[in-house]
Write a protein that binds this DNA or RNA. Structure first.
Lengths: 291, 291
DNA sequence: CCTGCAAAG
DNA sequence: CTTTTCAGG
């Protein structure tokens, strides 16, 4: 049995529950579920969700800046050894965008990266988004050096890394989510020892994780791949599958995830940080379509 | 063919249109339709409503104080000779609660009386509501003296006149809508030459025009009769029927109305104000259940 | 509970 | 377009 981690920007957990979130949760086969944009305080969660038994361990992070805004969560079948809900920077922490949980074999982060644009293409929040991105990777790299345990960062990154990752790359070079500076910042951060698990395992596959609510754009599959599973290089050889469940409804995002084979690391926890694999040493070799 | 006037607090005309308002409008058999709480500027009306052909003449009054608040309208099959949308008092006019239209045979007002209570039973707006009530009747009495033409005032009056007019009179003597001062003010105004057409024609009948949205109160018929057709005494003998269509859905209020026989007044417009009829001279005789 | 608004996505 | 919150009813 692989260890499955799934991420989903639910765009309001209460709305998503009304559209069948609990059935999805029961059937998703995950060991850990990362959620973003829950837009709900724990006290206001639907009782059916709070009393749900399959994921006994749930951790919710709420935005302090504004009610009903942002918020992330991690649900797991086994109890986490440790939870971190602060990036050590109030301007980021107040928006409820980050949660890290440590398990036996690895650490899992649920992260909701800022959107960058307000209305249309004013792109006023791009600087904040870039600073957040740098900060998250700095933070996780530090955690990783200190703990020596692999990390999987899953969440809504709000960046399509390459032209293959959105239906209309040409028309969106000035749209936040596909700006050169956003792609460069993300590539630089990933270059410090991370892999985009989906693209590594599916070099040519065209699937999206987000579609605008407006018009009938999802039916025409005019979307973006902006929800990601980024894994530290030591974890990449253990990724057996990476998937986007773009048929799942309930949000303007689709869930995506990875299956990990943790047999060896799980049985040898005392072994310490693994040396980077060959694939991990050459992130450029992880296969990008269009090159 | 009687002349039918119908009133309906639609609680948002756009919402009501989504729930079948146009089918109702086509079938209601009215010559004049008075609406309250349209909560929509004319420019934002659904196109299906704006292009509707049955009621060619429509007049919309919008609240200036707040977008999406209050607002009344009058729709008619024949063009009004004159329209009045000001009570001559800015504190009332700004809330878009009054519209008067003059037709050949009579004048019709669509009026949305203030609610009196904010949340629950703070009753903070009761003084404003009483002042509005006095002002509307003063205004219409003046119009009537000047023009000598009968008036029908239809709308959401937000007062249940007598215990028979609400399901829970005992428990609501401190609730706005059934406060002694509200009932007294209304009775005093009506006493100056007006009749509650529904109660005059249906002395014993128990029907309501409003039910709270909360709980399943409408199914249990725990309601209030607060939408009324008040007619000047010269008009009362011409009222053939008064009805509440409490089966009609689409709002938390039900439509109600009156059928008038205008043959005589219509054929003899030069006759001037009619002398009050016997019934009009004794409003106490109009039959109140529970006395 | 339901409407329409505003901010955000 | 859709989710929240909010005021108002």
């Amino acid at each position: 049995m692989p260890f499955r981690i799934v991420t989903w920007n639910v765009n309001g957990i209460r709305s998503c529950v009304r559209k069948g979130f609990l059935d999805w949760l029961a059937d998703c086969g995950a060991d850990v579920v990362a959620l973003q944009e829950v837009r709900c305080e724990p006290a206001d969660l639907p009782p059916e969700l709070s009393s749900q038994k399959r994921f006994r361990h749930a951790s919710w992070v709420t935005a302090r800046s504004k009610k009903g805004y942002s918020g992330v969560a991690l649900l797991s079948r086994k109890p986490p050894l440790r939870r971190v809900d602060s990036l050590g920077e109030e301007s980021f922490d107040r928006e409820g965008r980050f949660l890290l949980a440590e398990f036996e074999e690895l650490q899992v982060a649920s992260v909701y990266f800022p959107k960058g644009s307000g209305n249309e293409r004013d792109n006023s929040r791009v600087p904040y988004k870039l600073a957040f991105t740098e900060h998250v990777f700095d933070f996780l790299d530090r955690v990783r050096r200190r703990e020596g345990k692999p990390i999987a960062l899953l969440g809504d990154v709000n960046v399509a890394p390459e032209p293959i990752d959105l239906a209309r790359p040409k028309g969106n070079e000035k749209t936040s989510g596909f700006l050169p500076e956003e792609r460069e910042t993300l590539a630089r951060c990933l270059g410090r020892g991370w892999a985009d698990a989906y693209r590594a395992l599916e070099p040519e596959r065209v699937q999206y994780t987000w579609w605008s609510n407006r018009f009938g754009v999802r039916e025409k599959n005019i979307g973006w791949r902006i929800d990601h599973a980024f894994v530290t290089h030591d974890l990449l050889p253990r990724v057996r599958r990476a998937f986007i469940h773009d048929h799942v409804r309930g949000s303007d995002h689709a869930p995506m995830g990875i299956d990990l084979d943790l047999r060896e690391t799980a049985s040898r926890p005392a072994r310490g940080p693994r040396a980077p694999s060959a694939a991990a040493d050459r992130p450029r070799a992880r296969g990008r379509a269009g090159r």
